[in-house]
Nucleic acid binder design. Sequence first.
DNA 1: CGAGCCATTGACAGAGGTCAAGGCGTGTGG
DNA 2: CCACACGCCTTGACCTCTGTCAATGGCTCG
Lengths: 257, 257
Amino acid sequence: MTNIFTLDKYRFPVDHDQHYHRGFMMNEEDVAIIREISLFSSMSDEHFDQLLKLSHLKQSPPQVQIITEGDPADFLHIVLEGTVEMFSSSNDRDTTMLVLRAGSTFILAAVLKDAVYLMSARTLDDSKILMIPAGNVRKVMETDPDFARTMVTELTKNFRGVIRAFKERKLRTGLERLANYLIRMNEQTSGRGQIMLTENKRTLAALLSVTPEYLSRAFKKLGEYGVEVSGKRIHLTDLRALKRLAKPNPLIDKRDI
Amino acid sequence: MTNIFTLDKYRFPVDHDQHYHRGFMMNEEDVAIIREISLFSSMSDEHFDQLLKLSHLKQSPPQVQIITEGDPADFLHIVLEGTVEMFSSSNDRDTTMLVLRAGSTFILAAVLKDAVYLMSARTLDDSKILMIPAGNVRKVMETDPDFARTMVTELTKNFRGVIRAFKERKLRTGLERLANYLIRMNEQTSGRGQIMLTENKRTLAALLSVTPEYLSRAFKKLGEYGVEVSGKRIHLTDLRALKRLAKPNPLIDKRDI
DNA sequence: CGAGCCATTGACAGAGGTCAAGGCGTGTGG
DNA sequence: CCACACGCCTTGACCTCTGTCAATGGCTCG
């Protein structure tokens, strides 16, 4: 199938702060990849076209701030690669709200409401982010009920994700959050107790919403529950004991119900 | 204007647990009031009719549990009168997530996703709650784009409400949350520092997500910032000092941006 | 080999919960 | 009209979770 998209439609007009990120025109390969994302895969070429007009890709190294709370929501953001931390500040405190991976959209609610961002975002890894002008999203939603449904589904998913994060923060201690994280990792890799951490411990600490120091102590404490740590390699030698501590709960841990 | 609705359409078929609440048929007056809620005021009679079919009103005294997390989302709930606390439990802890007043919908996300509730709800005051079968909501959304938009707006609003609550919990201490609450109350009543608490302190504690004991101590501590308490009557004698402590932040405190 | 980042460890402090006891007000029954 | 009970709020003592600050150890990379 030939690619029907001419590249100049997807050029970003201005790259506001070149010091901190690089805005890219998309090449054919990028566009093809984006076309396949489930959010867009079922829409017509015409609407896809309309949506991506003046969209752009942002490629950022770690620790680059992408959006700032309080700014108007110009773009819908979609993480294509890497890791993005949603955080929030007030009264010179700073707290991680969520950590997002490839496939996640963020600040959809602000885009739909045409309001300001309530959270800031920064990269934690090298990341590639697709930015779609907020107006395009709203316009295509008006004319394409199917896309509107997709967006609502996405918003709903994000909503429930936030609820889950909120619950986990309020109902579990940092130690328990770590224990549950390890249990989830173990199930995903279906390994029999052998885990390789996919992120460095700083990122993991943010993900669990604790300080690196606290995380370090938590790992040590989990030694009492059969968790052996050496660098990024973790060995769970007593899953039963760990679960007794963690008390996993599908209403918090299962991401898709 | 004559009321076009015949009452028997709005009868609830089964009242599952009569011990804890009373399910009511709606009378003409109820229906008329509901018709005026902004969520429904602009829709056609036909769709309104379709929506409310088999809906019912639930009238509950304080401390009655209305929904339980993990149950399938059968009904969209709308608070018509009173106060509802959304809470969540795990591992025999129990935490307040949100407190809702008249006009709020809840568990819209679960209804749209046709999934289970992620939070439980209980009344804090005598409350009147409208329950609309989840299927009706989804059906009318399919055929009435305007209503669909209204629901999306509502979901968006709720989403941002949760983000705000989450932020407030993570970025402010209990003392600061109380201080900001008093400042907000003062602005709403536009009184010059004279506030009358609208809820008892137990409810207020839940709303601020602290224990009653903590709240009591927090009030005492606010004495240092010019807050004088006698029962439900509060006097703010040094708003400047209170604000210096509270550091109000529109991205947390303003409910409608 | 040194610079620097990351992780660990120790000492400490503060926020906020728990438990138990006591005070205050209000409504009901004698 | 008084007394008592019950619910709510307050107060004190205490403890745990978690953050902060500072020092150190280890690893990587130029």
